[in-house]
Nucleic acid binder design. Structure first.
Lengths: 219, 219
DNA sequence: CAAATTTGTTAGATTGTTCTAACTTATTAC
DNA sequence: GTAATAAGTTAGAACAATCTAACAAATTTG
Protein backbone atom coordinates (compact mmCIF):
# COMPACT_ATOMS: atom_id res chain seq x y z
CA UNK A 1 0.00 0.00 0.00
CA UNK A 2 1.23 3.46 -0.88
CA UNK A 3 2.07 5.89 1.93
CA UNK A 4 0.41 9.33 1.89
CA UNK A 5 3.62 10.74 0.49
CA UNK A 6 3.72 8.16 -2.27
CA UNK A 7 0.06 8.85 -3.02
CA UNK A 8 0.91 12.52 -3.43
CA UNK A 9 3.65 11.68 -5.90
CA UNK A 10 1.32 9.42 -7.88
CA UNK A 11 -1.36 12.08 -7.97
CA UNK A 12 1.13 14.73 -9.09
CA UNK A 13 2.42 12.44 -11.84
CA UNK A 14 -1.17 11.78 -12.94
CA UNK A 15 -2.08 15.45 -13.02
CA UNK A 16 1.16 16.50 -14.75
CA UNK A 17 1.07 13.77 -17.39
CA UNK A 18 0.86 15.26 -20.84
CA UNK A 19 -0.32 13.48 -24.01
CA UNK A 20 2.64 11.08 -23.84
CA UNK A 21 2.04 10.52 -20.15
CA UNK A 22 5.60 11.64 -19.42
CA UNK A 23 6.66 13.85 -16.54
CA UNK A 24 10.03 15.56 -16.00
CA UNK A 25 11.69 15.29 -12.63
CA UNK A 26 11.88 19.08 -12.41
CA UNK A 27 8.15 19.49 -13.11
CA UNK A 28 7.39 16.85 -10.53
CA UNK A 29 9.67 18.49 -7.96
CA UNK A 30 8.10 21.83 -8.74
CA UNK A 31 4.55 20.55 -8.52
CA UNK A 32 5.18 18.97 -5.14
CA UNK A 33 7.35 21.80 -3.83
CA UNK A 34 10.27 19.50 -3.07
CA UNK A 35 13.87 19.60 -4.27
CA UNK A 36 14.90 17.72 -7.39
CA UNK A 37 17.04 15.20 -5.49
CA UNK A 38 14.03 14.41 -3.32
CA UNK A 39 11.80 13.84 -6.33
CA UNK A 40 14.55 11.81 -7.96
CA UNK A 41 14.98 9.46 -5.03
CA UNK A 42 11.24 9.06 -4.55
CA UNK A 43 10.79 8.17 -8.21
CA UNK A 44 13.40 5.45 -7.81
CA UNK A 45 11.50 4.02 -4.90
CA UNK A 46 8.15 4.23 -6.75
CA UNK A 47 9.80 2.28 -9.52
CA UNK A 48 10.73 -0.52 -7.13
CA UNK A 49 7.03 -0.91 -6.26
CA UNK A 50 6.08 -0.90 -9.94
CA UNK A 51 4.12 2.35 -9.82
CA UNK A 52 6.29 4.03 -12.48
CA UNK A 53 8.71 3.30 -15.30
CA UNK A 54 11.92 5.22 -14.93
CA UNK A 55 15.37 5.36 -16.47
CA UNK A 56 18.16 7.80 -15.65
CA UNK A 57 17.78 11.13 -17.43
CA UNK A 58 14.45 10.07 -18.91
CA UNK A 59 11.01 11.39 -17.97
CA UNK A 60 8.88 9.39 -15.54
CA UNK A 61 5.91 7.36 -16.82
CA UNK A 62 3.14 5.90 -14.66
CA UNK A 63 2.58 2.16 -15.12
CA UNK A 64 -1.05 1.01 -15.58
CA UNK A 65 -1.00 0.05 -11.90
CA UNK A 66 0.26 3.55 -11.00
CA UNK A 67 -2.32 5.20 -13.23
CA UNK A 68 -5.16 3.33 -11.61
CA UNK A 69 -3.90 4.04 -8.12
CA UNK A 70 -3.54 7.73 -8.95
CA UNK A 71 -6.98 7.92 -10.55
CA UNK A 72 -8.53 6.40 -7.44
CA UNK A 73 -6.88 9.06 -5.29
CA UNK A 74 -8.16 11.76 -7.64
CA UNK A 75 -11.57 10.10 -7.36
CA UNK A 76 -11.47 10.34 -3.57
CA UNK A 77 -10.34 13.98 -3.78
CA UNK A 78 -13.11 15.03 -6.16
CA UNK A 79 -15.85 13.07 -4.42
CA UNK A 80 -14.79 14.72 -1.19
CA UNK A 81 -14.91 18.18 -2.74
CA UNK A 82 -18.40 17.50 -4.03
CA UNK A 83 -19.50 16.14 -0.66
CA UNK A 84 -18.14 19.17 1.18
CA UNK A 85 -19.95 21.55 -1.18
CA UNK A 86 -23.25 19.70 -1.61
CA UNK A 87 -23.67 18.12 1.81
CA UNK A 88 -21.66 20.20 4.23
CA UNK A 89 -22.14 23.75 3.03
CA UNK A 90 -18.56 24.54 2.02
CA UNK A 91 -17.88 27.09 -0.72
CA UNK A 92 -16.11 25.78 -3.84
CA UNK A 93 -13.12 27.96 -2.92
CA UNK A 94 -12.73 26.27 0.49
CA UNK A 95 -12.64 22.59 -0.33
CA UNK A 96 -9.26 21.95 -1.87
CA UNK A 97 -7.12 21.92 1.28
CA UNK A 98 -9.44 19.64 3.25
CA UNK A 99 -9.86 17.30 0.30
CA UNK A 100 -6.06 17.04 0.04
CA UNK A 101 -6.15 15.50 3.50
CA UNK A 102 -9.30 13.40 3.21
CA UNK A 103 -8.16 11.81 -0.07
CA UNK A 104 -5.67 9.74 1.97
CA UNK A 105 -8.32 8.14 4.19
CA UNK A 106 -8.46 4.38 3.72
CA UNK A 107 -12.11 3.36 3.82
CA UNK A 108 -13.90 2.21 0.69
CA UNK A 109 -17.23 2.47 2.49
CA UNK A 110 -16.67 6.11 3.42
CA UNK A 111 -16.23 7.14 -0.19
CA UNK A 112 -18.87 4.76 -1.53
CA UNK A 113 -21.39 6.34 0.83
CA UNK A 114 -20.39 9.84 -0.29
CA UNK A 115 -20.84 8.72 -3.89
CA UNK A 116 -24.26 7.27 -3.14
CA UNK A 117 -25.42 10.29 -1.13
CA UNK A 118 -24.36 12.53 -3.99
CA UNK A 119 -26.22 10.45 -6.59
CA UNK A 120 -23.05 9.20 -8.33
CA UNK A 121 -21.77 12.53 -9.63
CA UNK A 122 -19.51 12.59 -12.70
CA UNK A 123 -17.96 16.00 -12.07
CA UNK A 124 -16.61 17.82 -9.03
CA UNK A 125 -17.58 21.37 -7.94
CA UNK A 126 -15.08 22.85 -10.41
CA UNK A 127 -16.36 20.85 -13.38
CA UNK A 128 -13.50 18.33 -13.35
CA UNK A 129 -14.51 14.75 -14.12
CA UNK A 130 -14.57 12.20 -11.27
CA UNK A 131 -12.90 8.88 -12.21
CA UNK A 132 -15.16 5.86 -11.63
CA UNK A 133 -14.34 3.22 -9.02
CA UNK A 134 -12.15 1.39 -11.55
CA UNK A 135 -10.09 4.52 -12.11
CA UNK A 136 -11.58 5.26 -15.54
CA UNK A 137 -12.32 8.88 -16.34
CA UNK A 138 -14.38 10.39 -19.14
CA UNK A 139 -12.47 13.04 -21.01
CA UNK A 140 -14.51 16.09 -21.87
CA UNK A 141 -13.49 18.50 -24.58
CA UNK A 142 -14.57 21.94 -23.59
CA UNK A 143 -13.69 25.22 -25.24
CA UNK A 144 -11.90 27.96 -23.34
CA UNK A 145 -13.98 31.13 -23.28
CA UNK A 146 -10.92 32.89 -24.67
CA UNK A 147 -11.45 31.01 -27.95
CA UNK A 148 -15.08 32.08 -28.35
CA UNK A 149 -16.31 34.62 -30.87
CA UNK A 150 -18.61 37.58 -30.35
CA UNK A 151 -22.23 36.58 -30.72
CA UNK A 152 -21.73 33.06 -29.39
CA UNK A 153 -23.85 31.83 -26.51
CA UNK A 154 -22.14 29.45 -24.15
CA UNK A 155 -22.59 27.77 -20.80
CA UNK A 156 -19.85 27.85 -18.16
CA UNK A 157 -19.00 24.21 -17.56
CA UNK A 158 -15.58 23.79 -15.97
CA UNK A 159 -12.37 25.52 -14.91
CA UNK A 160 -8.76 24.81 -15.78
CA UNK A 161 -7.57 26.38 -12.54
CA UNK A 162 -9.26 26.11 -9.19
CA UNK A 163 -7.07 28.24 -6.94
CA UNK A 164 -8.93 29.90 -4.09
CA UNK A 165 -8.04 33.32 -5.51
CA UNK A 166 -9.53 32.56 -8.92
CA UNK A 167 -12.64 31.04 -7.35
CA UNK A 168 -13.09 34.10 -5.17
CA UNK A 169 -12.74 36.27 -8.24
CA UNK A 170 -15.52 34.26 -9.88
CA UNK A 171 -17.65 34.52 -6.74
CA UNK A 172 -17.28 38.31 -6.78
CA UNK A 173 -18.59 38.31 -10.37
CA UNK A 174 -21.38 35.85 -9.50
CA UNK A 175 -19.95 33.43 -12.03
CA UNK A 176 -20.73 29.82 -11.22
CA UNK A 177 -20.92 26.60 -13.23
CA UNK A 178 -24.00 26.44 -15.43
CA UNK A 179 -24.28 30.18 -16.04
CA UNK A 180 -25.26 31.10 -19.60
CA UNK A 181 -22.96 33.70 -21.12
CA UNK A 182 -23.27 35.69 -24.30
CA UNK A 183 -20.00 36.82 -25.83
CA UNK A 184 -20.42 40.50 -26.66
CA UNK A 185 -17.01 41.43 -27.96
CA UNK A 186 -13.31 40.92 -27.66
CA UNK A 187 -10.70 43.63 -27.25
CA UNK A 188 -8.03 43.16 -29.87
CA UNK A 189 -5.26 44.86 -27.90
CA UNK A 190 -5.35 42.74 -24.72
CA UNK A 191 -7.60 39.80 -25.72
CA UNK A 192 -10.02 40.62 -22.94
CA UNK A 193 -13.59 39.44 -23.52
CA UNK A 194 -16.84 41.24 -22.78
CA UNK A 195 -19.72 38.99 -21.80
CA UNK A 196 -23.30 39.37 -20.66
CA UNK A 197 -25.20 37.06 -18.31
CA UNK A 198 -28.18 37.25 -15.94
CA UNK A 199 -27.94 40.36 -13.69
CA UNK A 200 -24.63 41.28 -15.35
CA UNK A 201 -25.44 42.98 -18.63
CA UNK A 202 -21.79 43.90 -19.21
CA UNK A 203 -18.77 42.24 -17.64
CA UNK A 204 -15.19 42.32 -18.92
CA UNK A 205 -12.94 39.31 -18.37
CA UNK A 206 -9.18 39.43 -18.90
CA UNK A 207 -7.49 37.00 -21.25
CA UNK A 208 -5.99 35.26 -18.23
CA UNK A 209 -9.42 34.71 -16.69
CA UNK A 210 -11.17 33.75 -19.92
CA UNK A 211 -8.52 31.11 -20.73
CA UNK A 212 -9.37 29.42 -17.47
CA UNK A 213 -13.12 29.33 -18.07
CA UNK A 214 -14.22 26.27 -20.03
CA UNK A 215 -17.56 26.47 -21.79
CA UNK A 216 -19.95 24.39 -23.81
CA UNK A 217 -21.16 26.18 -26.91
CA UNK A 218 -24.95 26.43 -27.19
CA UNK A 219 -26.78 26.36 -30.55
CA UNK B 1 1.52 21.62 15.78
CA UNK B 2 1.53 17.99 16.77
CA UNK B 3 2.17 15.35 14.09
CA UNK B 4 -0.34 12.52 13.65
CA UNK B 5 1.98 10.29 15.63
CA UNK B 6 2.23 12.79 18.45
CA UNK B 7 -1.54 13.20 18.39
CA UNK B 8 -1.88 9.45 18.84
CA UNK B 9 0.42 9.54 21.86
CA UNK B 10 -1.53 12.42 23.39
CA UNK B 11 -4.82 10.63 22.83
CA UNK B 12 -3.48 7.41 24.34
CA UNK B 13 -2.19 9.32 27.38
CA UNK B 14 -5.58 11.00 27.73
CA UNK B 15 -7.50 7.74 27.50
CA UNK B 16 -5.13 5.86 29.81
CA UNK B 17 -4.98 8.55 32.47
CA UNK B 18 -6.29 7.26 35.75
CA UNK B 19 -7.58 9.35 38.66
CA UNK B 20 -4.10 10.83 39.20
CA UNK B 21 -3.73 11.47 35.49
CA UNK B 22 -0.60 9.34 35.48
CA UNK B 23 0.36 6.83 32.79
CA UNK B 24 3.14 4.24 32.92
CA UNK B 25 5.48 3.95 29.98
CA UNK B 26 4.62 0.27 29.66
CA UNK B 27 0.88 0.93 29.54
CA UNK B 28 1.47 3.62 26.96
CA UNK B 29 3.67 1.33 24.87
CA UNK B 30 1.08 -1.38 25.18
CA UNK B 31 -1.82 0.84 24.26
CA UNK B 32 -0.06 2.09 21.15
CA UNK B 33 1.44 -1.27 20.21
CA UNK B 34 4.99 0.09 20.19
CA UNK B 35 8.06 -1.00 22.12
CA UNK B 36 8.91 0.61 25.45
CA UNK B 37 12.02 2.35 24.12
CA UNK B 38 9.88 3.90 21.41
CA UNK B 39 7.32 5.15 23.90
CA UNK B 40 10.13 6.37 26.14
CA UNK B 41 11.81 8.41 23.45
CA UNK B 42 8.53 9.84 22.20
CA UNK B 43 7.59 10.92 25.72
CA UNK B 44 10.90 12.76 25.98
CA UNK B 45 10.13 14.61 22.80
CA UNK B 46 6.57 15.40 23.89
CA UNK B 47 8.08 16.86 27.02
CA UNK B 48 10.25 19.22 24.97
CA UNK B 49 7.09 20.62 23.37
CA UNK B 50 5.44 20.98 26.77
CA UNK B 51 2.69 18.43 26.13
CA UNK B 52 3.69 16.27 29.12
CA UNK B 53 5.56 16.34 32.41
CA UNK B 54 8.09 13.58 32.64
CA UNK B 55 10.94 12.50 34.86
CA UNK B 56 13.02 9.37 34.56
CA UNK B 57 11.37 6.31 36.08
CA UNK B 58 8.23 8.29 36.88
CA UNK B 59 4.84 7.98 35.19
CA UNK B 60 3.93 10.47 32.44
CA UNK B 61 1.48 13.29 33.15
CA UNK B 62 -0.25 15.43 30.52
CA UNK B 63 0.21 19.18 30.98
CA UNK B 64 -2.95 21.34 30.74
CA UNK B 65 -1.85 22.14 27.19
CA UNK B 66 -1.47 18.43 26.45
CA UNK B 67 -4.83 17.63 28.02
CA UNK B 68 -6.62 20.19 25.93
CA UNK B 69 -4.93 19.06 22.73
CA UNK B 70 -5.80 15.45 23.51
CA UNK B 71 -9.41 16.30 24.36
CA UNK B 72 -9.78 18.12 21.05
CA UNK B 73 -8.56 15.04 19.19
CA UNK B 74 -11.00 12.88 21.14
CA UNK B 75 -13.66 15.44 20.23
CA UNK B 76 -12.87 15.07 16.54
CA UNK B 77 -12.88 11.29 16.87
CA UNK B 78 -16.25 11.13 18.60
CA UNK B 79 -17.91 13.75 16.41
CA UNK B 80 -16.74 11.76 13.41
CA UNK B 81 -18.15 8.53 14.79
CA UNK B 82 -21.48 10.22 15.37
CA UNK B 83 -21.45 11.72 11.89
CA UNK B 84 -20.67 8.38 10.27
CA UNK B 85 -23.51 6.69 12.14
CA UNK B 86 -26.16 9.40 11.96
CA UNK B 87 -25.44 10.94 8.58
CA UNK B 88 -23.66 8.31 6.55
CA UNK B 89 -25.35 5.06 7.51
CA UNK B 90 -22.44 3.32 9.22
CA UNK B 91 -23.05 0.77 11.95
CA UNK B 92 -21.65 1.60 15.41
CA UNK B 93 -19.29 -1.36 15.03
CA UNK B 94 -17.75 0.06 11.83
CA UNK B 95 -16.79 3.58 12.75
CA UNK B 96 -13.74 3.29 14.97
CA UNK B 97 -11.11 2.61 12.32
CA UNK B 98 -12.24 5.38 9.99
CA UNK B 99 -12.56 7.85 12.87
CA UNK B 100 -8.98 7.01 13.89
CA UNK B 101 -7.92 8.42 10.54
CA UNK B 102 -10.33 11.34 10.24
CA UNK B 103 -9.48 12.63 13.73
CA UNK B 104 -6.14 13.84 12.31
CA UNK B 105 -7.71 16.05 9.64
CA UNK B 106 -6.87 19.72 10.19
CA UNK B 107 -9.97 21.73 9.39
CA UNK B 108 -11.97 23.44 12.11
CA UNK B 109 -14.79 24.09 9.66
CA UNK B 110 -15.13 20.42 8.75
CA UNK B 111 -15.73 19.41 12.36
CA UNK B 112 -17.80 22.48 13.19
CA UNK B 113 -20.14 21.60 10.34
CA UNK B 114 -20.41 18.00 11.54
CA UNK B 115 -21.25 19.31 15.01
CA UNK B 116 -23.88 21.66 13.61
CA UNK B 117 -25.43 19.03 11.33
CA UNK B 118 -25.66 16.66 14.28
CA UNK B 119 -27.32 19.27 16.50
CA UNK B 120 -24.36 19.62 18.90
CA UNK B 121 -24.37 16.10 20.33
CA UNK B 122 -22.89 15.48 23.79
CA UNK B 123 -22.28 11.74 23.37
CA UNK B 124 -20.92 9.53 20.61
CA UNK B 125 -22.61 6.37 19.23
CA UNK B 126 -21.19 4.32 22.12
CA UNK B 127 -22.41 6.70 24.81
CA UNK B 128 -19.02 8.27 25.46
CA UNK B 129 -19.12 12.02 26.10
CA UNK B 130 -17.87 14.39 23.39
CA UNK B 131 -15.55 17.12 24.75
CA UNK B 132 -16.68 20.64 23.82
CA UNK B 133 -14.64 22.86 21.52
CA UNK B 134 -12.59 24.05 24.50
CA UNK B 135 -11.66 20.48 25.36
CA UNK B 136 -13.96 20.31 28.39
CA UNK B 137 -15.85 17.09 28.93
CA UNK B 138 -18.77 16.30 31.19
CA UNK B 139 -18.10 13.27 33.33
CA UNK B 140 -21.07 10.96 33.66
CA UNK B 141 -21.33 8.45 36.44
CA UNK B 142 -23.11 5.42 35.16
CA UNK B 143 -23.54 2.08 36.85
CA UNK B 144 -22.25 -1.11 35.26
CA UNK B 145 -25.09 -3.56 34.69
CA UNK B 146 -23.00 -6.06 36.63
CA UNK B 147 -23.63 -4.01 39.79
CA UNK B 148 -27.41 -4.01 39.43
CA UNK B 149 -29.78 -6.01 41.57
CA UNK B 150 -32.68 -8.23 40.51
CA UNK B 151 -35.87 -6.23 40.16
CA UNK B 152 -34.13 -3.03 39.08
CA UNK B 153 -35.20 -1.33 35.87
CA UNK B 154 -32.45 0.40 33.98
CA UNK B 155 -31.70 2.04 30.66
CA UNK B 156 -28.63 1.10 28.60
CA UNK B 157 -26.67 4.34 28.29
CA UNK B 158 -23.04 3.72 27.42
CA UNK B 159 -20.30 1.14 26.98
CA UNK B 160 -16.88 0.83 28.59
CA UNK B 161 -15.55 -1.12 25.62
CA UNK B 162 -16.38 -0.49 21.99
CA UNK B 163 -14.49 -3.21 20.16
CA UNK B 164 -16.14 -4.36 16.95
CA UNK B 165 -16.56 -7.85 18.42
CA UNK B 166 -18.42 -6.60 21.49
CA UNK B 167 -20.59 -4.30 19.37
CA UNK B 168 -21.45 -7.18 17.05
CA UNK B 169 -22.35 -9.27 20.07
CA UNK B 170 -24.72 -6.51 21.19
CA UNK B 171 -26.15 -6.24 17.66
CA UNK B 172 -26.89 -9.97 17.68
CA UNK B 173 -28.85 -9.53 20.92
CA UNK B 174 -30.58 -6.39 19.59
CA UNK B 175 -29.07 -4.38 22.41
CA UNK B 176 -28.62 -0.72 21.57
CA UNK B 177 -28.29 2.46 23.59
CA UNK B 178 -31.58 3.55 25.15
CA UNK B 179 -33.02 0.06 25.57
CA UNK B 180 -34.92 -0.45 28.84
CA UNK B 181 -33.80 -3.53 30.71
CA UNK B 182 -35.29 -5.26 33.69
CA UNK B 183 -32.85 -7.24 35.81
CA UNK B 184 -34.45 -10.61 36.43
CA UNK B 185 -31.77 -12.44 38.36
CA UNK B 186 -28.10 -13.01 38.81
CA UNK B 187 -26.34 -16.32 38.86
CA UNK B 188 -24.22 -16.56 41.99
CA UNK B 189 -21.72 -19.04 40.57
CA UNK B 190 -20.56 -17.06 37.50
CA UNK B 191 -22.05 -13.60 38.11
CA UNK B 192 -23.99 -13.77 34.87
CA UNK B 193 -27.11 -11.62 34.75
CA UNK B 194 -30.51 -12.45 33.33
CA UNK B 195 -32.41 -9.52 31.87
CA UNK B 196 -35.63 -8.89 30.03
CA UNK B 197 -36.29 -6.21 27.42
CA UNK B 198 -38.67 -5.63 24.49
CA UNK B 199 -38.88 -8.73 22.25
CA UNK B 200 -36.35 -10.49 24.50
CA UNK B 201 -38.25 -11.81 27.51
CA UNK B 202 -35.20 -13.71 28.77
CA UNK B 203 -31.59 -13.01 27.90
CA UNK B 204 -28.51 -14.06 29.84
CA UNK B 205 -25.43 -11.81 29.85
CA UNK B 206 -22.05 -12.98 31.12
CA UNK B 207 -20.25 -11.07 33.84
CA UNK B 208 -17.73 -9.91 31.24
CA UNK B 209 -20.48 -8.46 29.06
CA UNK B 210 -22.50 -6.95 31.89
CA UNK B 211 -19.43 -5.15 33.28
CA UNK B 212 -19.12 -3.37 29.98
CA UNK B 213 -22.71 -2.22 29.82
CA UNK B 214 -23.29 1.09 31.60
CA UNK B 215 -26.81 1.88 32.67
CA UNK B 216 -28.90 4.60 34.22
CA UNK B 217 -31.14 3.32 36.97
CA UNK B 218 -34.83 4.18 36.49
CA UNK B 219 -37.17 4.83 39.43
C1' DC C 1 29.44 23.25 -32.69
C1' DA C 2 31.09 25.13 -28.49
C1' DA C 3 29.53 27.76 -24.57
C1' DA C 4 25.95 28.66 -21.51
C1' DT C 5 21.97 27.12 -19.31
C1' DT C 6 18.87 23.84 -17.68
C1' DT C 7 18.01 19.44 -15.97
C1' DG C 8 19.22 15.49 -13.48
C1' DT C 9 22.24 12.76 -10.35
C1' DT C 10 25.25 11.44 -6.42
C1' DA C 11 26.94 11.95 -1.93
C1' DG C 12 26.19 12.96 2.53
C1' DA C 13 23.57 14.94 6.30
C1' DT C 14 19.12 15.62 9.08
C1' DT C 15 14.68 14.62 11.31
C1' DG C 16 11.01 11.60 12.83
C1' DT C 17 9.60 7.19 14.21
C1' DT C 18 10.56 2.81 14.86
C1' DC C 19 13.24 -1.43 16.34
C1' DT C 20 16.50 -4.99 19.23
C1' DA C 21 20.01 -5.91 22.60
C1' DA C 22 21.97 -4.89 26.74
C1' DC C 23 21.79 -2.72 30.93
C1' DT C 24 19.66 -0.34 35.24
C1' DT C 25 16.13 0.76 38.54
C1' DA C 26 12.00 -0.33 40.92
C1' DT C 27 8.77 -3.57 42.73
C1' DT C 28 7.18 -7.99 44.38
C1' DA C 29 7.58 -12.26 46.72
C1' DC C 30 9.33 -15.31 49.59
C1' DG D 1 15.83 -8.11 53.03
C1' DT D 2 17.70 -10.37 49.35
C1' DA D 3 16.38 -12.65 44.98
C1' DA D 4 13.45 -12.74 41.20
C1' DT D 5 10.57 -10.20 38.18
C1' DA D 6 8.81 -6.19 36.03
C1' DA D 7 9.47 -1.70 34.35
C1' DG D 8 12.31 1.67 32.38
C1' DT D 9 16.54 3.37 30.03
C1' DT D 10 20.54 3.75 26.84
C1' DA D 11 22.92 2.70 22.79
C1' DG D 12 22.90 1.84 18.27
C1' DA D 13 20.70 0.72 13.95
C1' DA D 14 17.10 1.15 10.21
C1' DC D 15 13.82 3.28 7.16
C1' DA D 16 11.18 7.14 5.04
C1' DA D 17 11.36 11.63 3.51
C1' DT D 18 13.63 15.51 3.21
C1' DC D 19 17.63 18.87 2.42
C1' DT D 20 22.27 21.23 0.36
C1' DA D 21 26.51 21.05 -2.20
C1' DA D 22 28.86 19.43 -5.90
C1' DC D 23 29.08 17.23 -10.12
C1' DA D 24 27.32 15.31 -14.79
C1' DA D 25 24.33 15.02 -18.79
C1' DA D 26 21.26 17.09 -21.97
C1' DT D 27 19.49 20.96 -24.24
C1' DT D 28 19.49 25.54 -25.99
C1' DT D 29 21.60 29.41 -28.08
C1' DG D 30 24.65 32.47 -30.26
Amino acid sequence: MASSTEENYLKALYNLSNGQGEVNISDLANGLKVSMPTANSMVKSLQKSDWVIYEKYKPVILTPKGQKEAALIVRKHRLTEMFLVKKMGFGWEEVHEVAEQIEHIHSPKFFDRMDEMLGYPTIDPHGSPIPDNQGRMKEFSYTPLSACKPGQEVQLTALTNSSAEFLEFLNSRKLSLGVHLKVISREAYDQSIVVSYPDHPIETLSEKASERLLVRILE
